[in-house]
Simulated assay, not measured.
Amino acid sequence: MGSSSLPSQLVRRARGLVAAGPRRILGIAGAPGAGKSTLARQLVAALGRDAVLVPMDGFHLAQAELERLGRAHRKGAPDTFDAEGYVALLTRLRAPAPGVTVYAPAFDRDLEEPVAGSIAVPPDVPLVVTEGNYLLHDAGPWARVRPLLDETWYLELDRDTRVRRLVERHVAHGKERAEAERWVARSDEANARLVAAGRSRADRVVTRTDPAPRRSG
């Protein structure tokens, strides 16, 4: 999804949220490999200083903690994130305090670890864009995410393209191809089915048919 392929109607809709008055939060949900990160980055780039991107992936639990909990083999499942922390951050972002910059975590794909305090959100930024798998999930603390978002888009990409991109992403980050294919079939696709269950709760479904870069979400 190159910058020239960003649909103008999506940019207009995001600008409409910016113009709506107080700070708004736009969520972009979708299955692993659907292109969430790419779309979110493009929107924020198009809006310039009016928007900041705060990905859900910054709330991955650290690898050491996943291993302690016995969940490392399911990394990416709902219980491998700090959902309560994500809800707390969104709550702060909805009501910015004058003069207070909020710092959000990011996820380093090379390290495969979250990095605290990576993203600065000044109080005068009118739109926060957040993206991730479980923005529309309705179990446990995740059920509190959707009410904190002013609008949510569900991003779809055809399964074959999405799976191919996921495999390539895992290979690019060190997995052997056979291992990457097993991981996608066992873990990523199980998560994709869970994510798809929330599709009907989105305000807008955005369907993509063109391949996007390997490292997008």
Rank of each mutant, 00 (worst) to 15 (best):
L66S: 05
V205T: 15
P105E: 04
A120Q: 09
D150V: 04
L135S: 06
G85A: 07
W153K: 10
L157A: 14
T209F: 13
E168M: 09
P114N: 00
A185W: 08
R186I: 10
S200Y: 06
L66M: 05
A45K: 06
H73D: 15
G21V: 00
G174C: 04
G174S: 04
P141A: 10
T152F: 05
A202V: 00
M56R: 00
R12C: 06
G58P: 14
T161I: 12
H173Q: 04
T209S: 15
L157S: 15
V115L: 15
L111Q: 13
P78S: 11
A40W: 05
S187N: 15
V163C: 13
R165H: 11
S3K: 08
V167M: 12
V125K: 09
T38I: 09
S200Q: 13
D150C: 08
P22V: 03
V171P: 02
V11E: 09
F107S: 10
A202H: 00
A20C: 01
R24W: 07
I119Y: 11
L17C: 04
Y86I: 09
G58W: 12
R164H: 08
V18F: 07
I25Q: 02
D150H: 10
E156Y: 04
G27Y: 02
L69V: 04
V11C: 01
G30H: 01
V87Y: 05
V167K: 07
R12V: 06
L61M: 15
V128H: 08
R24N: 03
Q63Y: 02
F107G: 12
R204P: 13
L166A: 11
A72H: 12
L149N: 02
G35Q: 10
A95N: 11
V129I: 01
A88V: 03
E84A: 15
D50H: 06
L47E: 00
A31T: 02
K75T: 14
A88H: 05
W183S: 12
G48S: 10
R164T: 10
G140P: 02
P22S: 09
L166T: 04
E189G: 10
D57A: 01
T38A: 13
M1V: 07
A106I: 09
A116W: 03
L93T: 00
S4G: 11
R162T: 04
R71C: 11
P123L: 06
I25L: 15
V44H: 03
S200G: 13
V195Q: 00
V129E: 00
G85K: 03
L166W: 01
D158N: 11
V129C: 01
A88E: 12
P213N: 04
A14V: 01
R186Y: 06
P96M: 08
L148A: 03
S216Y: 10
P105Y: 06
R186S: 13
S187P: 12
P98N: 05
G76W: 10
